[in-house]
Amino acid sequence: MRRCRRLLAGVAATLSVEALVAGCDRAPSTLSPVGPKSDFTTWAWWGLFAVAAFVCCIIIGLTVLAGVVRRRSTKVKTGEGRTFVMVCGVILPGIVFAGVFALSVGGLVATSEPSHKPAMTVDVVGHQWWWEFHYQGTSAVTANELHVPVGTSVELRLRTHDVIHSFWIPQVMPKMDLLPRRINKTWLSVDHPGTYRGECAEYCGVQHAHMDFALVAQSQSDFRSWLQRQEQDAATPTTTSEQQGMQFFTSASCSTCHTIRGTSAHGQLGPDLTHVGSRPSLAAGLIPNDVGHMSGWIANSQAVKPGNLMPPQHLSPSDLHDVVAYLQSLK
């Protein structure tokens, strides 16, 4: 009975939350663009939508009217109607299509190169199922979190560690695939500071649904100080618990997959954890980054994100406590 009530409460909460946010702008909507590329696609969409709606109204109207009007008619018109078909089916669409083609070519020209030379380059590496960002010319490496300065073109060099992924930030830029052994170059630029949702858009296996990242657009000065912090090696543990956590991390299997710069952990398979404590979320945007969620993730990440490549870790409660304390301290 209590379970049933809890379930009902959950459903009600979900519905009301849904109703509240249905129109809210938290959605990574392609129609609320914050960068020149998505500006173009949004503008193109409304133009295409207007023409499409017009065409649909005419054809649907003619179809329905034919059913209503021509049903009762007794007079059947003669003639082959080739001119009608030629004009409506070829010439008029031809004119519209010429316009659409111009839009397409114009769009390619407008979006393939940025108007200013990119100020910086970020290497984007897709993994099953998380994102890795290397800031070229620095030692900063982050996971599932891409920071860029506002109003600046940033060059992106996309590649994949395993299968094909696709890099998409609906409010900022259209998609570009990540291909094995190939580097796809693209760029982005963000007009307003804020955090925007990025997604993997190419089906890449069992956890394709949970392969998000956050694009954080900051003012130049905020970005610079953030980058400086990310370049530094990991903070030295201060409390006993943190020290034991570091000890455990570097000696146990953690370090075979993860790197923490400034320690002996140099694993390459999982995300770089040098500044993991500063990240707002874990598991490619799936769970918030706090002590509880992180402990649950380490103990059995398969329960959180089934199929992900991190095996369950059988830690004693005190070891788990220490490791989480240490990782949370890595701001």
Partner: peptide, 16 residues
């Protein structure tokens, strides 16, 4: 379908 001919728009909505 005609909208997909506009390459940047296609790149925006493909796989969505």
């Amino acid at each position: 379908g005609v909208m997909f001919a506009v390459v940047p728009f296609d790149q925006q909505v493909t796989d969505s």
